[in-house]
Design a protein around this nucleic acid. Structure first.
Lengths: 237, 237
DNA sequence: CGTGGGTTTGATGCTCCTCAATTGCTGTGG
DNA sequence: CCACAGCAATTGAGGAGCATCAAACCCACG
C-alpha cells in the first residue's frame, strides 16, 4: 500500500488511483481450470438497424466482421453525436463500465460477432498476452476519442471535413487517385463532425472549388493530399 | 483462429480485431520469477509547469497525489484543447500507445508519482486482478472522453458551462450550498469547453442573472442544482 | 500606491445554423 | 421505357451564437 491509499479517502466514486492500492489483492485466486475460449455468436444487421441501444447493460462486446457501423448517442431533444465509425476488424463495447454509453447502428448491412464481456474479462485475466492486446485496443480507441476532441473543440468546419476525408481514405485503404465512396450519409458525417448537413455540403463545395477534391454525387476524389492535410492542420507523415 | 483473421487482411495499421486472432499466442511464456511491484518516483510540479510534453515517448505513467493538473494538446497555430482535469487519485498516461498525445501541466502546485509503464504492463500481465482494475480505469477515462465529445460537438455554451460546474462540484466533493473555488483559470476552462474566455464569462453572467448560481470573483455558488442540470441537459441521478 | 496579471464588459463581425426551396438519384409501377 | 414518388443532397437567404478586438475593471503583489 506504498502508493496512494492516502490520496483517496472518502471518495464517492471508485477512483482511478485505487488500482494501485494494496488493500485489494493484485492477483486473482488460483483457477481450478482455465476459462474457455470465448465463442462468438453471429449477429447480422440490416442497414440502419440498431444493434445496441444507448444505455443498455453492457453484457456483450462486438466485433465487426463485415460492413460499417456507427456509435451513437442522442440527447433527449434529438441532438445526436456519432462517436466513431467502425469497420471490419474493429471492436465495440470493450472499454465500457456497466452500460454502453453509446449505442451502435449499422451504416451498411453488416455482420458482427457477439461475445459475452464477462467471458472475455475472465479470459483476459488468465491470458496475459490477450489482456495486453485488449489493453492496446483500449489505448487505440482512447487516442481516437482524444483526437476527435480536438476536432470538435477547436477545428473549423473545413478542417473537420478535411480531417475526415483523410482519415476515411486511410481507413478504406485507398491509394491516392482512387474515388472514395463513403458508406455513410451526409447526416452521419455531420453528426460525427459536430456540424449540420448543410455545412458539410458547403465545405465540400469549397474544397471542390479550391481544386483540392472532386466530388460527383456520393463519390469523392482527393486530388491533392498534401493540400488537404494543410486544410486539416495535420502533421505530415 | 475461429474468430476473425479472415476479416483483417492486408491492413496498414494493427487492427483491433487482431486481439482475438489465434495467430498470436494468448498466454505469455511462463515467468521464471514474478515481476517486482512497480515503485513510484515522487515528481513535484510548480504551478503551470509542464510535466510531460505532448508527443513525448510514453515511458512513464503518472498518479496525481495532490493538486490539480490538466492534459493539453496544442495545435501548431496555438489553438489549445484541454482533455481533462486530473485530481488526487487520478492516473495519467496509462492507456496510450508509443507517445503521449496530450501533455500534462500543473494547474496548481502538485505532487505526482511516476511509474515506468513497461513495469506496470508486466505487472498487469502477471496479476490478473491488477490488470482488471487497470482496464476499468481505461474504461472510465474512455467514458469521460466520450461524454466530452457530446459536450464539444453538440452542446451550447450555457450547457457546457453548466455541465462543467456540476462535474466540478462532484469532483471537489462539495455539498450543495458550499462555494466552489475552481483551481483553474478562465482560460483553462475555455480551452476545456471549446470556448473563449469571454464566452465563459458571459455564460457565467447569464447563469448569475438567472439566479441559478452566484459568483464572486473566482468563487462560485450553485443555488439551484436541479435548474443547473436542466441547463446542462443532463439526466438526473 | 502603482504595476501587472487575470477577469469582466462592450461593440462588432464572421462562422455556422436554421429554414426553405431546388436539384438529383433510385427504385417502382404503369 | 418513361413517369412519378420518395429521399438524400445541394443551394440560397437570413439570423443567432459565439469569436474577435478593445477597453475597463479588479485584485494580489512588490
Amino acid at each position: 500500500m506504498h502508493i496512494l491509499a492516502q490520496s483517496i479517502e472518502r471518495d464517492p466514486m471508485p477512483r482511478m488511483g485505487m488500482v494501485l492500492d494494496r488493500s485489494m489483492p493484485w492477483s486473482l485466486p488460483p483457477m481450478t481450470r482455465l476459462p474457455p475460449v470465448p465463442r462468438p455468436v453471429a449477429v447480422p444487421a440490416a442497414k440502419d438497424a440498431t444493434i445496441v441501444e444507448q444505455d443498455d447493460e453492457a453484457k456483450y462486446c462486438f466485433l465487426i466482421v463485415t460492413g460499417c457501423v456507427r456509435t451513437v448517442r442522442t440527447m433527449t431533444d434529438g441532438r445526436r453525436q456519432i462517436g466513431e465509425f467502425l469497420f471490419a476488424g474493429d471492436v465495440y463495447g470493450w472499454d465500457v463500465l456497466e452500460t454502453h454509453d453509446y449505442g451502435i447502428e449499422a451504416v451498411t448491412p453488416s455482420l458482427l460477432h457477439r461475445f459475452p464481456r464477462d467471458e472475455l474479462q475472465e479470459f483476459a485475466d488468465t491470458h496475459g498476452n490477450f489482456g495486453r492486446r485488449m489493453r492496446e485496443l483500449s489505448a487505440r480507441q482512447g487516442r481516437a476519442s482524444r483526437d476527435h476532441m480536438i476536432l470538435l473543440g477547436r477545428k473549423t468546419a473545413t478542417e473537420r471535413l478535411a480531417s475526415f476525408l483523410l482519415a476515411l481514405a486511410v481507413r478504406l485503404k485507398l491509394e491516392d487517385g482512387t474515388w472514395i465512396v463513403p458508406p455513410m450519409s451526409r447526416s452521419d458525417i455531420a453528426d460525427y463532425l459536430g456540424l449540420t448537413i448543410e455545412t458539410v455540403c458547403r465545405q465540400l463545395k469549397h474544397l471542390r472549388e479550391d481544386g483540392t477534391i472532386s466530388s460527383n454525387g456520393t463519390k469523392i476524389l482527393i486530388h491533392d493530399r498534401r493540400s488537404l492535410m494543410g486544410c486539416a492542420r495535420m502533421a505530415l507523415h
